[in-house]
């Protein structure tokens, strides 16, 4: 059963409010949690996700930095090693390129290289997603890069409920966690319980149950998958929508079990398809449910182009409800 269907939750929050609530609750609970990043204090980030936190926690814990992504990410790594639990804010996922040495050579490797002696309990929050008319350097979804690196965990919440529960888990985790938020989703509302709850990593959520085809969606593509599933329902195809929620650790068992049931699968992710998250998940499904498959696993991701500015160009670069619907219909032999 989808997790939320099991509980009747009255209150609704936006995705941004859910993120903020998770941070506030963890900062109240643990004085070592702090936020480091560009325009995180009074500005509350350009997306206003952090509005109000500096008023409650002060500038000692909600810390504005210069525009020095490598520098303050490195500070986050060192602070995490020495007793803090920093939440480093990288405004746009595209700026992750500037943090790569700190994340890949430092954060990801410190624990292993030190034989398990040092640990890096740090969260790096950032964004992904196109269609905001921000062009090629503010629109990429680069979570596959980090999913590729041993030592990092990668989280992709798709609802306000998941955002709060997963972020709390991320902050309490003793490893470096990269937490991607779809910037188009910040104003999306959804039920969020008040107070304490966490969502474990490596546990996929079945967002909708179905029997004919499995649509695996991540982050921004979960709503797309659910929209496609509704369209498929109208033509008599029952789609199951699964959200892995974390690309590492990855809940392979839930993915395989679903496809064993449905025997068809589409994987939809907003990162680039080539060598991407969809490739990995398709491979997991192919290896784990090969003899149950009635059709090849279909992958859908961003087109292999830099994200263009012009709206008619940008809109065709990412999967939509309609394109996923069409692909699913074809896969089910009803095209």
């Amino acid at each position: 059963m989808p997790e939320l269907a099991e509980r009747a939750i009255e209150r609704e929050l936006t995705f941004a409010q859910a993120v903020r609530e998770a941070l506030a609750e963890e900062m109240r609970r643990d004085p070592t949690v702090c936020i480091i990043g560009e325009d995180v204090a009074e500005a509350g980030t350009p997306f206003k996700v952090l509005s109000g936190l500096v008023e409650e926690f002060g500038k000692e814990r909600v810390i504005d930095t210069p525009i020095s992504e490598a520098g303050f990410t490195g500070v986050g790594v060192g602070a995490a090693m020495t007793g803090m639990r920093p939440v480093v804010d990288i405004m746009f996922g595209d700026f992750l390129t500037l943090t790569m040495d700190q994340m890949v050579n430092q954060a990801a490797k410190v624990h292993y290289m030190s034989g398990g002696k040092w640990k890096v309990p740090m969260v790096l929050r950032t964004t992904l997603g196109a269609t905001r008319r921000s062009a090629a350097q503010h629109s990429q979804s680069l979570h596959a890069w980090f999913s590729h690196v041993p030592g990092l965990k990668v989280v992709l919440p798709s609802t306000p409920y998941d955002a709060k529960g997963l972020l709390k888990t991320a902050i309490r985790d003793d490893n470096p966690v990269v937490f991607f938020e779809d910037k188009m989703m910040y104003k999306t509302k959804g039920p969020v319980p008040e107070g304490e709850y966490t969502i474990p990593f490596g546990v996929a959520d079945i967002k909708r149950e179905g029997t004919d085809i499995t649509i695996v969606g991540t982050s921004s593509m979960v709503q797309v998958a659910l929209g496609a599933a509704a369209l498929l329902d109208e033509i008599g195809i029952s789609a199951e929508v699964i959200d892995p929620r974390t690309t590492w650790p990855l809940d392979e068992a839930t993915l395989i079990a679903s496809v064993k049931k449905t025997s068809r699968a589409i994987v939809v992710d907003e990162g680039y398809g080539r060598y991407g998250v969809t490739a990995e998940i398709a491979s997991v499904i192919a290896e784990g449910a090969f003899f149950n498959l009635e059709a090849p696993v279909k992958r859908m991701g961003a087109m292999h182009v830099p994200i263009p500015f012009s709206p008619p160009l940008e809109d065709v670069t990412v999967p939509t409800e309609q394109t996923v619907f069409e692909a699913a219909r074809k896969l089910c032999g009803k095209a």
């Binding site: 070592t32 702090c34 000692e60 490598a70 520098g71 990410t73 490195g74 500070v75 986050g76 790594v77 060192g78 602070a79 995490a80 090693m81 020495t82 007793g83 803090m84 920093p86 040495d101 700190q102 050579n105 430092q106 410190v110 290289m113 030190s114 040092w118």
Partner: peptide
């Protein structure tokens, strides 16, 4: 010893972060 680093300036951030913690503590 926070560790030796094979990226020549790789530990500059870590050392500064340790100083950040030190100040906080």
């Amino acid at each position: 010893n926070l560790g030796a680093n094979a990226i020549v300036a790789g530990s500059a951030g870590i050392a500064t972060g340790a100083a950040f913690s030190a100040k906080h503590k």
